[in-house]
Computed example of a mutant assay.
Amino acid sequence: MSSDRILTGIGLRLLAVALLATMAALVKLAEARGAGLGETMFFRQLGALPIVLAWLTVTGDLKSVRTRRFSAHLGRAVAGLMGMTATFGAIHLLPLAEATSLQFAAPVFATLLGALWLREPTGVHRWGAVLTGFAGIVIIAQPGGHAVPLAGAAVGLAAAFMIAVISILLRQIGRTERAGATVFWFSALSLPPLAIAWLLDFRAHDAATWALLAGVGAVGGAGQIALTAALRHAPVSVVVPMDYSALIWATLLGWLLFEQLPGDTTWIGAPLLIGSGLYIAMREHRLHKADSAAKPPIP
């Protein structure tokens, strides 16, 4: 794979992280103006669907939405809705930096799920990274402390857990389905229940709030496309470490828009979480290369 393609993949991933961090800030701004959780989620998916369809058309992948694994996409949509509810809930309940930092626990949960659910071999190095990650979680969440609301920390960790579950589901679906089709079906299948939730809690807003909700969908959809497109140019092990740049954006946007800076414990706990996640990704990459090298060539 050429260095140009790898740099393109890294650039797209960094763009995706910046867009999704901006979406989170828009969600928080809309919530401050009276928007509910259900409607921010509805507009996130409503705005994303036409962007996804346009992207599939431009890339020639529109035919890939045909699937024989509808039940798998349905299960992914259910898990995705649960994860989105927790993610947006954490944004509502916590400062942006804390909500973002807790999502970095996803690789820790993914390692645990891989060992317990998929029976994947997990050596002492990964278990050490898991324990380091949990130390970071405890430092950020401060059980019994007051810096981070306990409810917000619990919802943020639930979001990280669901991100890990979804990553495993996507790995299984990805064996037969293209990424664009998976993005499309998640958007399409999640819209009906979200529309019901929105209508049951319909609220009138001023023009600025409607604009923020529209921005949530447009920016979130663009971020989702950039995430998927990055993997066309570079391996997962190369682009995933770029995700940790989200903390820079969350800190900057939290300071500029809400006059919030991360607490002292977040500055200590977040590096532990990031370090554990990077170590897990590095070990995954090395093991994958070793397994590939050990396989005999296909005649």
Rank of each mutant, 00 (worst) to 15 (best):
A158P: 08
A207Q: 15
L199A: 03
F104V: 05
T87D: 13
L116T: 15
A214E: 00
I139P: 01
L112Q: 10
H146N: 15
A204Q: 02
L93G: 05
H146V: 14
G83P: 09
A230Y: 07
H125G: 06
T122L: 09
T265G: 12
G215I: 13
R69W: 08
L118R: 13
H146M: 13
L252M: 15
T67C: 04
I137T: 03
I51W: 09
Q103Y: 06
R232M: 12
T265S: 15
L261E: 15
G223M: 02
T265M: 15
T100S: 06
S71R: 14
A207V: 14
A21Q: 12
P143T: 15
R33E: 14
A110Y: 05
A48P: 15
A16K: 07
F134W: 10
L49A: 07
L257Q: 04
D264S: 09
G217S: 02
T176K: 04
W267L: 02
D206Y: 01
V148C: 01
W198S: 02
A164N: 07
L15H: 10
L252T: 15
W185K: 03
H73Y: 04
R232W: 12
Y244R: 10
L62W: 07
R119Q: 04
K63M: 08
G47Q: 05
L93N: 04
A30R: 00
H233T: 04
D243V: 09
S2Y: 12
V78H: 05
L94E: 14
A246P: 03
G277F: 05
G89Y: 10
A154C: 15
Q172T: 12
P193A: 01
V65T: 02
A293C: 13
P192K: 06
G75N: 09
A77M: 00
W117A: 08
V236N: 12
L112P: 09
I163S: 08
I274R: 12
L93P: 00
A218H: 01
A204R: 05
I163V: 14
L56R: 00
G220F: 10
F109S: 07
A21P: 13
E284C: 03
Y244P: 05
T85I: 08
L287Q: 10
I139E: 00
E284V: 01
